[in-house]
C-alpha cells in the first residue's frame, strides 16, 4: 500500500505540475493576438483593415499600405458604414456601379458568427418550435418543448409536464411522410422570440437527408431539400437574416461551405471557402454586394471576399498566426464546453 500511495502521490504531483506550470507561464508571457479587423472594400476591390498600434492608436489602411483618415475609411466601406455615411450626408447613390439605397443596404447586411464551443458541447436534449405564422407581428415562445427520439418527435406540454401525443403524432407522421428517417443526426434553429421572423429548424436525418421543419398555424410544415449529387452534409446553421435570401449555411464532410438560398431551397457552394466548424471559428460580415468571410484556423486567420450575388471568390488574405505557447495539460478549452484532460 505504501508503494501504491507513493506512486499515486507523485502521479498527482506530476499532473498538477503539468497543469499549473505551463498555465502560469502562458498567462504571464503569451500576448493576445493583434490581427487587424479586416473587411473587403467594394470601392477598392481589395481588403482594408483597422489595426490598433502598440501606442494605442488606430490605423486605417488598405492592403497596399496606404493610410486613411477615419472619415475617408468610412467611404471605402459604404455599405458597412451606411448609417454613418447617411448621417454625414455622404451615402453614395451607387456603389461599384450599382444604384443602392440605405434601406437596401441595411436589409442586406448581416453578421454571422460560429464558434467551435457552440457545437462541441453537451446536447440540450430539448428544443422549442415557435409558431411561424401566428398572424401577429411579434413572435412568441411556445407553451411546449420537443425532443427528438429514435422513432419521431415528441412535444411536451411544459405546464403539465406531459407528452402531447396528438401533436407529437401529427408532426412525426408528417416528417415520416416526407421521407425523414429517425434518429435525426443534427438540427439547427434559433429558438428565440427576439427575431423578425421564424424559420423553425433544419434537420439532418439518419441518412444525411436535409429537411426543413416549422410550425405554421399549429400544423407541421416539412420540406425535404434536394441535395446535389454526392453532397454529404455535416453541419447546419439556420440564418434567419433580414434579407431572407439565405435560409442556412451548411458545411459538408470536406469542410466546404454552402449556402441554402431562398426562395426555392437552392444549394450553392461558396467558392474557395473551407471551414471546419468543430475546430475553427467563422465570422461572415455580409453586405449587399459582398461578404467578408473570416475563418480563424489553427495556423492562420483566413479571409475570403465572396460575391453576394453568385458566391464566387473575389479575393483572399491570410494572417499567419505564430502563437508561442508552452504545451501543457488543461481540463477546459475555449473550443468546447467539456471538462476532460487534454495535452496541448
Amino acid at each position: 500500500m505504501t508503494r501504491f500511495a507513493k506512486l499515486f502521490f507523485w502521479f498527482l504531483v506530476l499532473v498538477l505540475l503539468l497543469w499549473q506550470l505551463p498555465w502560469a507561464v502562458n498567462y504571464l508571457l503569451v500576448q493576445s493576438r493583434n490581427t487587424p479587423f479586416t473587411l473587403y472594400s467594394e470601392v477598392l476591390d481589395d481588403f482594408v483593415m483597422i489595426r490598433h498600434t502598440s501606442d494605442k492608436e488606430v490605423e486605417y489602411r488598405d492592403r497596399a499600405g496606404n493610410e486613411y483618415t477615419r472619415r475617408a475609411f468610412d467611404s471605402l466601406l459604404p455599405l458597412f458604414y451606411a448609417r454613418q455615411l447617411t448621417a454625414d450626408g455622404r451615402f453614395p447613390d451607387s456603389v461599384a456601379g450599382r444604384p443602392v439605397t440605405l434601406r437596401e443596404a441595411q436589409i442586406a447586411s448581416f453578421i454571422f458568427r460560429s464558434a467551435p464551443k457552440d457545437l462541441n458541447r453537451p446536447a440540450p436534449g430539448l428544443h422549442f418550435l415557435l409558431e411561424s405564422m401566428s398572424g401577429r407581428v411579434d413572435l412568441a415562445m411556445p407553451s411546449d418543448a420537443f425532443r427528438l427520439t429514435g422513432r419521431g418527435i415528441e412535444f411536451i406540454d411544459m405546464a403539465a409536464n406531459r407528452i402531447d401525443t396528438a401533436k407529437s403524432g401529427r408532426f412525426t407522421r408528417m416528417l415520416l411522410r416526407k421521407g425523414c428517417r429517425f434518429p435525426v443526426r443534427e438540427l439547427s434553429g434559433n429558438p428565440s422570440a427576439r427575431k423578425e421572423y421564424d424559420e423553425g429548424y433544419l434537420l439532418l436525418d439518419a441518412d444525411g437527408g436535409l429537411f426543413h421543419l416549422k410550425m405554421m398555424q399549429g400544423r407541421p410544415y416539412v420540406r425535404a431539400v434536394e441535395l446535389p449529387e454526392g453532397l454529404r452534409l455535416r453541419h447546419l446553421f439556420l440564418t434567419e437574416f433580414r434579407s431572407r435570401r439565405t435560409l442556412a449555411f451548411l458545411t459538408d464532410e470536406s469542410h466546404r461551405l454552402h449556402v441554402l438560398t431562398m426562395p426555392g431551397y437552392g444549394i450553392r457552394r461558396v467558392e474557395g471557402v473551407t471551414f471546419d466548424p468543430e475546430r475553427e471559428s467563422m465570422t461572415i460580415v455580409g453586405t449587399l454586394l459582398d461578404w467578408t468571410v473570416c475563418v480563424d484556423g489553427a495556423s492562420a486567420e483566413r479571409y475570403y471576399a465572396v460575391s453576394a450575388d453568385d458566391f464566387s471568390l473575389l479575393d483572399t488574405l491570410s494572417y499567419p498566426l505564430s502563437e508561442r505557447r508552452i504545451p501543457g495539460l488543461s481540463f477546459t478549452s475555449s473550443s468546447d464546453r467539456y471538462v476532460k484532460p487534454r495535452f496541448r
Partner: peptide
C-alpha cells in the same frame, strides 16, 4: 468546479471518482 455547462464532465466524472477513491491511499502516507 470547472464545468461551464451541465453534463460537461461526461465520462471524465468516472475517472475523477476513481482518483478520488485512490486519494484514500494518501492518508496512509
Amino acid at each position: 468546479f470547472l464545468a461551464p455547462v451541465p453534463r460537461a464532465y461526461g465520462g471524465f466524472l468516472a475517472v475523477l471518482a476513481l482518483l478520488s477513491l485512490c486519494a484514500a491511499s494518501l492518508s496512509w502516507l
